[in-house]
Nucleic acid binder design. Structure first.
Length: 811
DNA sequence: TTTACGGGGTTTTTT
DNA sequence: ACCCCGTAAA
């Protein structure tokens, strides 16, 4: 192992080359610390860069590529750089462009594992029994295909859902297990031993359909390499340098894929550089093997290991808290982050009564920060599970605080988008059976199961695609006249559209297809909020197509990319997302709610993976804290509604993993919280007082809460609040008859909201009771009352909600 | 073709 | 408690 503090002196030749009149040379290395510089300049042999959170990982990766190019060690086309997500690939590309300009355009091998896999596979498709135009199935296609196979085997779909099998197959593929390699025991687990057979059937069916799923993009490439050493050698020679981002997230298949490409050639070790952080491995549940990073130097003997521990992101106390927390994990390579920066504010720890108070507190802290000039864009709420998001959304809608939910349903996975894409796939490739099946009766054309079955039978008998079968059958008398006419119309339409591919811009063609097929109309008839939203999405889809060369190019792109290109999110809004999707991001202020046993660490993680599960959860906590630059705010509630039931909860063990010296116990909302909300009247005996209403709260949750009082007192000891205080403010609010009364009491609370609202619009409400309005999230509804800018609306679907009028439009 | 009911599930997510 | 899905019945 090379001592990172003593970077290798460049050879004379290297220095001469570097001096070759390149001004940028000095520039790109200048701002690096010694370890980063070593990571950039150690070009020969295997290198593992253990990059802690916020230590400049991406910078090292991109600078290293710039350095390779600058040193003329390889052409841009000879560098393989792989990431996990498109987002990471995009970011890397942008940052390299920053360093080396146009040269990045010559880097065709910078991309995700899967995109790289497709690229290789398309070139050699015939060698693995595919045709070059093979389609890439997504999860949905996969499920429908599996469902067919399950039905064919007469297996009870209820007991053995297709998606369970899909995820089993996925898991096998993550571990590079082809049907012949699956351990017998595992193969038997599904449907009394049918699992393995179904997996094999599925693979056979994919071949017939000339299709692959995501897992195959890697597995088939591995097979290609193994069965064709010549092809492998070609790529091994081609890739002079290999760089891998987030190495701790690689699964077995990706690992094998990399190993094949990185095999030593002619006795020389390969120039592979993997960057990762074992402490940020949070995807074990989807097949990531932390082990890959832990045993890197065994896989690549003589590897240089460089640790990046100087953190440029967070203040001292935040780092100390994160470091102390993660130190509770065993089985890590061990890094300790440090900073030369200021200590800053200590992370805060706040105990709240329930999730509602949690949302209210965070909302008020956000408003307070905003008044101090803090951008909402620079704040994020990171939750363990997505159901936690709703509470925040509800609260923020009520107080009119702009927010953004990151990572909801993906654009291309939405029903309407998938339908639209299926139409386009059929236009582009008449043999795409899965796409055809999807839209044959969408919108309803009276082409039901019976017709489809007929098509299937014929198609299978003749060995032709469904659309071809349909073409033949409509020429005969075998079908009912009604179905026959409908089907004929559809086929004719597809012929017509396909004839237009060359003749008109593909975005226009898409619009034409959607309109003429009746698909647009189908959603226009749907008057719910959903319908309107879906039409919006369809418009967005057509718009986004313009960025692509042609229809085929567009379809290839979306098969690999699940996110829509983000419209410039310009509005200042707080982000709400899961801890998982926060990896790689950073914010000035980070709120970490829900630190309770069972939720975080999640019970299921503990149940299913025991100690390993716990450690992964703890890494998740570590990821959460290290997202913060200046403020990290941790919360735990004493009660939380889970699956609709109130459950009393115990603070997370991670709370106790934090170093007391670096954490500040927060008094909740300070003055604006208990006192400021005008509930001071409850005073010291708040608990007793509420208790006297206990008949009103004779819910199981409340009873449990009372039984839990001693536990809460224990919490209170930790938070420095008395037990009764820990019971918090408003159990009653939002529940039945006390709502009005407590709302009245909270006059000062309304003032806070009033200020905010006044700031945002300054106008009296444009709406009156009885007005029909539309809300993006809740759909259509009638205004019940209007008070300033705040409306109470009875929504058709979502029930009565308080919203700020700028969130709705007249309907 | 729509609607009503029952049943099952309810952590994290990419490609 | 709620939501999604699929099936059965109108």
């Amino acid at each position: 192992m090379t001592d990172p503090s003593a970077p290798r002196q460049p050879s004379l030749a290297e220095r001469a080359m570097a001096a070759r009149g390149n001004q940028a040379a000095a520039g790109y290395l200048a701002g690096l610390n010694p370890e980063q510089q070593a990571a950039v300049e150690t070009l020969d042999g295997p290198v593992l860069v253990l990059a802690g959170a916020g230590t400049g990982k991406t910078r090292v990766l991109t600078t290293r590529i710039a350095h390779i190019l600058n040193q003329r060690r390889a052409f841009p086309s000879e560098i393989l750089a792989v990431t996990f997500t498109n987002k990471a690939a995009r970011e890397m590309k942008e940052r390299i462009a920053h360093l080396v300009g146009e040269a990045v355009e010559g880097m065709p091998w910078l991309g995700t594992f899967h995109a790289t896999g497709v690229k290789i596979l398309r070139r050699h498709a015939e060698l693995v029994g595919l045709k070059p135009g093979f389609t890439i199935l997504d999860t949905d296609d996969q499920n429908r295909l599996l469902k067919q196979l399950i039905q064919a085997e007469d297996i009870d779909e209820k007991r053995w859902p297709a998606r369970v099998l899909a995820s089993a197959i996925d898991g096998w593929k993550n571990r590079a297990l082809t049907p012949d390699k699956v351990p017998a025991g595992e193969g038997a687990a599904y449907a009394n031993g049918m699992g393995l057979k179904l997996y094999a059937d599925y693979q056979a069916r994919l071949k017939v359909l000339n299709a692959v799923d995501f897992g195959d993009l890697l597995l088939e490439t591995i097979r290609l390499f193994r069965e064709n050493p010549g092809v492998l050698a070609e790529y091994q020679r081609k890739f002079k340098f290999i760089l891998v981002d987030e190495y701790q997230d690689t699964n077995v298949a990706q690992y094998l894929w990399l190993r094949l490409l990185a095999q030593r050639q002619e006795g020389r070790p390969q120039n592979i550089c993997c960057v990762g952080d074992d402490d940020q491995s949070i995807y074990g549940w989807r097949g990531a093997e932390v082990d890959n990073i832990l045993r890197f130097d065994k896989d690549f003997p003589g590897a240089t290991v460089i640790r990046l521990e100087r953190n440029y992101r967070s203040t001292g106390h935040i780092l100390a808290a994160a470091a102390h927390l993660i130190a509770h994990n065993e089985g890590r390579l061990g890094k300790t982050l440090f900073t030369d920066g200021e200590d800053g504010a200590k992370p805060t720890l706040t105990s709240v009564w329930d999730s509602e108070e949690e949302a209210r507190s965070i909302g008020e802290e956000l408003e307070q920060l905003q008044r101090q000039g803090h951008l909402l864009n620079e704040a994020a709420i990171l939750v363990r599970a997505s159901f936690q998001m709703r509470e925040f959304e509800d609260r923020f809608i009520t107080i009119g605080l702009p927010y953004r939910v990151i990572g909801g349903p993906r654009f291309y996975e939405r029903l309407e988008i998938r339908d639209a894409l299926a139409y386009l796939r059929c236009v582009a490739q008449t043999s795409d059976d899965l796409a055809f099946e999807r839209i044959v009766n969408t919108p309803k054309r009276g082409l039901g199961d019976a017709t489809l079955q007929q098509l299937h039978d014929h198609a299978r008998a003749q060995g032709v695609p469904l659309m071809q079968a349909a073409r033949v059958l409509t020429e005969t008398e075998e079908m009912k006249p009604k179905a026959r006419r409908a089907l004929k119309d559809l086929i004719d339409s597809f012929d017509r559209w396909a004839g237009q591919i060359e003749a008109m811009p593909h975005a226009e063609l898409a619009q034409l297809v959607l309109d003429e097929s009746g698909y647009t109309e189908m959603w226009q008839k749907d008057k719910t909020a959903e319908g309107a939203g879906r039409l919006e999405n369809l418009k967005e889809l057509v718009r986004s197509m313009e960025e692509f060369e042609n229809l085929a190019g567009f379809l290839e792109h979306i098969a690999l990319v699940t996110e829509a290109r983000g419209e410039g999110e310009t509005e200042d809004a707080v982000s709400i997302m899961t801890l998982h999707s926060a990896k790689g991001l950073e914010f000035e202020t980070v709120f970490l709610p829900g630190w309770e046993e069972g939720l975080f660490p999640h019970q299921r993680s503990l149940d299913e993976n025991g100690r390993a599960g716990l450690e992964e959860e703890r890494r998740l906590a570590y990821v959460g804290i290290t997202r913060a630059r200046r403020r990290a705010k941790i919360y735990f509630a004493g009660n939380r509604r889970i699956h609709g039931l109130w459950q009393s909860t115990v603070p997370s063990r991670f709370v106790n993993d934090l170093p007391p010296d670096h954490v500040e116990i927060s008094e909740g909302l300070g003055t604006s919280g208990y006192g400021g909300m005008g509930r001071g009247g409850f005073g010291q005996s708040r608990f007793d007082k509420v208790e006297s209403f206990s008949s009103t709260y004779a819910t199981p949750g409340w009873q449990r809460a009372q039984a839990q009082k001693s536990l809460n007192d224990a919490q209170a000891r930790f938070t420095g609040r008395t037990g009764s205080q820990a019971f918090g403010s408003t159990y009653a609010e939002g529940r039945g008859g006390f709502q009005g009364r407590l709302t009245d009491r909270s006059g000062s609370g309304r003032t806070i909201e009033g200020e905010l609202v006044a700031k945002s619009t300054g106008e009296p409400s444009r709406y009156q009771p009885g007005d029909r309005v539309f809300h993006l999230k809740f759909g259509y509804g009638d205004v019940v009352s209007a008070e300033g800018n705040k409306l109470t609306v009875q929504f058709d679907k979502a029930g009565e909600k308080k919203v700020v009028d700028s969130f709705v439009q007249a309907a």
